[in-house]
Design a protein around this nucleic acid. Structure first.
Length: 103
DNA sequence: CAAATGACGTAGC
DNA sequence: TGCTACGCCATTT
């Protein structure tokens, strides 16, 4: 399994997250048959070109929070994209019991 | 090639 | 709830 293949597997999983739902870095890695590579998912998304078709904003951490500083632009962008899809964010957290994608 | 880094996760306190 | 300390693993220094 080459790195590019791993990357494709991860992006494929992320691309299939339903609109209005979210998935955690860890679950994305696991669904891509890469359990334990949660961090790798992050490094992949980081390298993603701006304006990519990949719904990177549907990926959050296991605590239901956005993995960016509250003040950062990326944080606001992700929050906007999610709320636009109907995801409610209260107290800076997302209710995983309600929005977490589980096939 | 050793060491630091990070869009992470879990456990413990 | 919040914070630390590790474990993790590809990538970057």
């Amino acid at each position: 399994m080459t790195n590019d293949e791993k990357r494709d597997a991860i992006l494929l999983v992320i691309a299939s997250i339903p609109k209005g739902q979210v998935a955690t870095y860890g679950s994305v890695a696991e669904m891509a048959s890469l359990k334990g590579h949660a961090r790798f998912v992050g490094t992949i998304l980081k390298k993603l070109p701006t304006g990519s078709k990949i719904p990177w904003f549907r990926v959050i951490n296991s605590q239901g929070k956005i993995s960016f500083p509250e003040n950062s632009d990326k944080y606001l962008e992700q929050k906007n994209c999610l709320e636009k899809e109907g995801v409610i964010i209260t107290k800076n957290k997302i209710n995983l019991n309600h929005y977490l994608w589980q096939p």
